[in-house]
Design a protein around this nucleic acid. Sequence first.
DNA 1: TGACGTCAAGATCCG
DNA 2: CGGATCTTGACGTCA
Length: 418
Amino acid sequence: MNIGYACLVVGVQNTDMKSCTLKNASDERLLELIGHNLESLENIVGYNIKNNISLFRISSDLIPFGSSPVNRLSWDEIFADRFRCIGQKIKDSGMRVSMHPGQYTVLNSPYTLIVEKAIDDLNYHNRVLKALETGPEHKIILHIGGMYGDKCEALKRFALNFNNLDQGVRDRLVVENDHKAFNINDVLEIGTNLDIPVVFDNLHNEVNPYPGDRSEKYWIDQCRETWKSKDGNQKIHYSQQDPAKRPGSHSSTISVGRFMEFCSSLEGLDIDLMLEVKDKNISAIKCINAVAADKNIKYLEFEWSRYKYSVLENSPAIYLEIRKLLNNKQDYPVMPFYNLIEEAMKTGKTKGNSVNAMQHVWGYFKNTASDTEKKRFLKMLEGFEKDQIASASVKSYLWRLAVKYDEKYLLDSYYFIL
DNA sequence: TGACGTCAAGATCCG
DNA sequence: CGGATCTTGACGTCA
């Protein structure tokens, strides 16, 4: 089972994707951006390897305007070596990557122009995966598109346009159920007809179900039939509903309890699981640790080093409780560990607890920081205590100090992002 | 015509 | 000036 996350990494330096507006998209600017983004991608791949994350969706923003006529660059040739080098790392580590054009790539549109743009976009995604020299098990996931008042015709148009795609794209293409138009039964029908794999998305299925009371496991089993050996392991998308937002909105983090319930419902199926969640890599590591075969407390200790100041600013009581929990080095209390962290994150921060955490973090710079830095920190702290400035301002100053003094322990901490 | 979703660029405001 | 915060951009469909 591979577990991964989509597109971007939170809280890790030099992993951002840069872009520009259409009017600024000169060759020079685009070259600069692509170079930067490839460097970020390489760092992301390195981060994934270091953290045992073996599934990753590459951002469509890797090449700005990758499928637009404004980008006439032969970027796959210009950066061929960089692509090959990154691809080699992917291959060597056994990582599986994918790409996922967004909701605006509509292959089944009745408008020729839109279809042409969709084809260009699919070709672009394939061009990236080809430049990385990845095989056809590194997929491009696509939604079916719009309904236009006639589902049957819309499905027919999808099939027609699919059959006119380049072989390279067809070899990688996977279809997914969406939250509005095409439910999992529709997508299975078309996937079966076109002989391409189907990704089951649990939250889309919750919001836009096929009528009846089929279980998730039933649909996952059905989808499994569409995955052939050339396609690699079956893959699904997994996310949880954000209780505060509209149906279909992804939660900020994955609740480990519900995740494990879902895993046990799979009854041991070996499946690749792409998480769609706001905290991205953070939830990926959580879920990987939750199902780890190699139950070594060192993984939890490493996690604790990243979470501890966030927990401290929310709940000193839980902070102490987790420390106690990790005392027995023979144990692997992964569920209580993450449950306590999730509970702490839901606790409202009091000013006193925030200040306490700020002072703990400041402790790393106490002896190295200059007098002006010390003065500035103390002034900010005072400002925060008097409600004059936000805690985020103090934290972002502490982050700048962490970067300046290269405090490795803090640079890995979730304190600055959660 | 605006909402939808997502991210970062770009603009503006503030001390 | 740097940093925080708001608005725009890019995409197509649908009400």
